[in-house]
Amino acid sequence: MKNLSDEVLANIEEVVPSWLLRNPNLFKLILIRSTELAFGALGKSGVIRGPIHSSVGQEVVAVAACASLEDSDFMLSNHRGHGHYLAKGGNLTNLIYELLGDDRGCCSGLGGSMHVAELDSGILGSNGIVGAGVPIACGVSLAEKIKGSGAVTMVFLGDGAMNQGVVMESLNLAAIYSLPVIFVCENNQYAYSTRSDDMTKNAYHERASGFGIEATHLQDTSLNQNLKIMEKVVSKTRQKSMPHFVEFFTYRLHRHFETERQRAVDYLLADLHEHRSMNDPVTRECVELGQDESECDNVIAEVKFIITSFAETCVKK
């Protein structure tokens, strides 16, 4: 049972315009964007310690993937996990506390950015070891299957994680035990500084198919379309108790971690980066709803300000 008041979220809901409140998925998108921007700023100014892996640019994946999950469904995340946590219904205030190392945090301040969990919302944590959450998700879904609960388990992994042996083993486990687990592979085209194309000869969703798992390949270009597809994926996984693999083609607009130093020869492809920056998915979704870009930027700035001020006040106290 969830019983968590969310002070910061309540403050945000008070100031955001009604067109946004009427559209909860778009609201989530903006919430994740603003939160990541706030964390990035707080990390750079030293208010938050340690590396922060931001999901700026990938918000559509988190929101579309988690929208059809119930509270009783499970979700496991990776190092880039703030968006997944918020999309699955994690408490924002407790997330901020967590990144501040405050004992009111969702993991009592013991985990920080890379280890966020909220058991009441089925968020079984994020992970600092690439790929390590994937077999755990298989175990969680096997348990639910044995219990006959009908719950599904979703696990997020990056393109880089697809080259961990344990992930390949897990795909096979899910296939042979017919587990109600959804693998969401966020192909953001890079693992740290490494282009995924340089490290993989075939498509990730084809790999999953090779294990006998139904696989879907999606672009992050439309929230609504992806919401509909993910709704079907979740209900099919639940009803048939079969694994599903979803590859989302996406892009991270920020560096691997916020305080990463750019090297003399940068690994980012300048053209790709510019193209993706010009086609920011969050702005696009707002514009599609009839808002103009500056309105969208204003809302994000306002929400970011609420989060940043809250964090700064906590630290001063």
Partner: peptide, 28 residues
């Protein structure tokens, strides 16, 4: 991992000096 771009700082510049045969970027 990420030795071509020298992210850790240890192999900074190795790739341009020694080439892809000797500085081998790996998957995770």
């Amino acid at each position: 991992e990420d030795v071509r771009s020298g992210q850790k700082g240890i192999s900074d510049g190795f790739f341009s000096k020694f080439g892809a045969q000797r500085v081998i970027d790996t998957p995770i």
